[in-house]
Design a binder for these strands. Structure first.
Lengths: 151, 151
DNA sequence: TTACATGCAAAGTGTTTGCATAACT
DNA sequence: AGTTATGCAAACACTTTGCATGTAA
């Protein structure tokens, strides 16, 4: 069974907690990766004893986004967006070489984020969630680059 | 003629400054909006005396992204990404209702951004650029909502 | 029971690619 | 002159949609 939390989260957000929605949200919450729609579709249909159509995966993700439960994350190359459940504020380090997405945070991040929200309020803009991405090259890919240049 | 800057920027980034690339970068730099590939294609083919194929628009934008000259910005609903030239660090307020993208900034933004870059360095991640988006509802759409609820 | 969600397959849309032509240094 | 970019059109991939069936409260 799924953690009771998942169902409750859906209900708290005025989302009818159907089996498919529970499974998808549970998957997003438990996996530390940031899956694409395709990965969600494949993993759930393989590992769980639940079948979900692709249409439902897409519809559900869009619904979650609309309800501010999930955000889309773009890697720089990739055409497919990744989906991220927002447990607590964090930002992403996205490798332009391998496409890896790393969650990042630090003690005063909430503070800094708040500065941005304040600036938004000056524009009379009501913030509901955020997507903060730093693009660059990850440790592994940097090391690979060094090896290449040694040749 | 285009500002000499545009050509120089391309050369400084090891990008052969062809007419199409100059026109596209010039368009991205001079328009304060954050156009989609489609808007770039249409606007340039209408307003300037230059023709650019859609393939070239896409190829060029991807090339600019690879060279860290431009970033993709996703609105929450829209399927089409928007493209943003990065003159100086800033962040975006993106309205989930109307899709408007507002550039935002404040005095210490660079400072806050630097905290994130430092955190990235702890992960031995080398940052090249960033995309910081706050999603929510803009002033205009908030006002429209109020009107609706008055009925 | 009534409204709402799901699944299938087909349609739609945005993006990429191969190859001939043209442009850049 | 040699390399690299462009343009066209076709191929590709991802996402959405319509409608019949199934599910939730």
């Amino acid at each position: 069974m799924f953690s009771m939390n998942v169902k409750k989260i859906l209900q708290d957000n005025d989302i009818t907690p159907t089996l498919q929605r529970i499974v998808i949200l549970n998957y997003l919450m438990s996996s530390s990766k940031h899956p694409t729609a395709d990965q969600i579709f494949n993993d759930i249909n393989q590992d769980q004893n639940v079948t979900i159509s692709k249409a439902t995966v897409y519809n559900t993700l869009n619904y979650f986004i609309e309800k501010n439960l999930v955000i889309k994350v773009m890697t720089s190359k990739c055409t497919q967006p990744h989906y991220d459940y927002f447990l607590k504020p964090h930002f992403h380090l996205i490798c332009s070489k391998c496409g890896k997405i790393i969650d990042a945070n630090y003690d005063n991040f909430n503070n800094d984020l708040n500065h941005m929200v304040l600036e938004a309020q000056k524009n009379e803009f009501k913030v509901s969630n955020e997507s903060i991405n730093l693009y660059g090259v990850c440790k592994t890919c940097l090391e690979n680059d060094e090896e290449d240049s040694d040749n």
